[in-house]
Amino acid sequence: MALTSPPQTRSPFSVWQALVQRPELLTLTLVLLLALVIGLINPVFFTPQSLFDLLRASTVTGIFALGVLLVLAAGGIDVSFTAIAAFCLYTTTLLVLNVAPDAPFALPLLISIGFGLLLGLLNGLIVHRFRAPSLIVTIGTQYMIRGFLLAFIGTKHIMNIPEGMDRFGRWSLFQFTTAEGARASLPVAFLLLVAVALLTWWILSRTLLGRAIYAVGGSVPIAERLGIPVRSVYLFVFGYAGLLAGLGGLVHASLNQLANPFDLVGTELDVIAAVVLGGARVTGGTGTVIGTLLGVVLVVMINNSLILIGVPSTWQKVVIGAIILLASGVFSRRKLA
């Protein structure tokens, strides 16, 4: 009888059942499968250097993705974070160059995340205040922020980034020389991703705020009914996404040794795809930190390994699209199951 019977088990396979409960396992499976395929085609992939490259390339995307995760979990979507990141990295670089070019990395870091936080809060405020769809709002702010940056701040590439950023970007965590005599290294910046991931995990699973974010993502009217301050949740998730955009942007410029105001905008869908492939739903209310990180690894691996397996550049976009479609197909099967 329904009173005491367990929730209906809908599939006989316990493996499948596990995938239903833990979407990140599915992402992990996809990551491992893809790694295996790449490695079989080109064994060069199975070197520590590849791992370093992968982690390094995941750093900035990962920082962005964790911000997007929070917004998605709360039932919103943010496409403005790349514009925020470009604004923060460029404005901060200019400001620091003009005011205190020798300041330690902490100064540009604080300025950049400060700008990011403010712009993110603006998103949150508009979304809540006007009850507007966050997609439309953030498309608007993306254009506005980027337009403002290019029109009033500058369009010139800055090669000589401030000393602090330059040093941070070159600072290696590990470094070794490969058999061919080439150096491989993992930048310290990767630790920032680790720190942000831990912080995000803690917020999502160890605080009332984290649960409130998922609740709002589940249903705004119900959340209001149960006394959850929806406005605070919106301000927080968009502010946090903005803050991480500021951080990611600055790390991007530091690693890149270049402040380019045209960078990043246009890559937001890659990041969103990573979060969704990590198990978060575009409709909101779900998603985990570990899944998101795996999704980022998956997308970065797809993007960066096509050369290794010899896909001609004209076909790369087709292949990336096909793999994402395939992965999302597996995901929707999971949801139907």
């Binding site: 060069v44 490259d53 080439a182 690693l255 890149n256 993007n303 960066n304 390994s305």
Partner: peptide, 16 residues
């Protein structure tokens, strides 16, 4: 037109 992308692609080429 992104130096970071050029960097990543160059690394892949160097590896291959």
């Amino acid at each position: 037109d992104d130096a970071e992308k050029a960097y990543q692609k160059a690394k892949e080429i160097l590896k291959k």
